[in-house]
């Protein structure tokens, strides 16, 4: 029988080639990594037992990140350092653990995320934001709706070709940076390729998600 049941939050980066792993595939990849690392993690019982993990936030295919995380239940005493070390021994350079902590916030407290977007003509982004409104069509469960995303975009900085933005994210409302770039491309009348990286996730109280 298990001695303890303690949740652990595993932060990882998903960069380079790993940005093409879909959310569902990532889940399987991490479950297998936990098995390879022989960590004492809780598995579901019943017909089809499997390692139980939950991700904080999905990440769109093609976007890199240095602040992804999943939660897993530990059923035996093990240090966060040991989890960190053992997982990295069975992962690739593009998919590495950054830190392991005991969770502080709930997933539902996530409110915003910061993105760094590298693309040509980044200097035109201010002009883009100076429009009266920026209307996009957003697919929802009920169908397509038109919304004005201008008030949702918080521009932190434009430096050389790099734009730093904060966008709403989480369960309630989510603005995908790919949609912002799509609207920006329509504004400049080009098909610019953007390298996007999620760099931080924030909670409703303004603190970083940990």
């Amino acid at each position: 029988m298990c001695k303890i049941s303690k949740p652990m939050r595993v932060f990882f980066k998903k960069t380079g080639r790993a940005k093409y792993i879909s959310h569902l595939d990532l889940q399987r990849t991490m479950q297998r990594a936990l098995k390879r690392a022989k960590l004492p993690v809780w598995e579901t019982e019943g017909f089809n037992p499997h390692v139980y993990i939950t991700f904080a936030l999905p990440l769109s295919l093609g976007i890199e990140s240095v602040c992804e995380s999943f939660d897993v239940k530990i059923i035996n005493e093990i240090s966060t350092d040991e989890i960190h070390e053992k997982l990295n021994a069975v992962l690739t350079d593009d998919l590495l653990i950054i830190k392991v902590t005991e969770p502080v916030y709930k997933h539902t407290e996530i409110k915003e995320a910061m993105y760094e977007i590298v693309l040509e003509e980044a200097e035109k982004f201010r002009g883009f934001l100076n429009q009266n409104e920026i209307i996009i069509t957003k697919k929802t469960k009920k169908g397509e709706t038109e919304i004005d995303i201008k008030p949702l975009i918080e521009l932190k900085e434009i430096k050389d070709n790099k734009i730093t933005l904060i966008l709403p994210t989480g369960n309630e409302f989510n603005l995908n940076p790919l949609q912002v770039i799509k609207a920006f491309n329509a504004f400049v009348g080009a098909e610019l390729q953007a390298d996007i990286m999620r760099t931080a996730i924030f909670c409703a109280d303004g603190n970083k998600f940990i």
Binding site: D25, T29, R32, L91, T92
Partner: peptide
């Protein structure tokens, strides 16, 4: 795209 990029474990 994951099938065209390699880099697997």
């Amino acid at each position: 795209p994951a099938r065209y990029i390699g880099g697997e474990i």
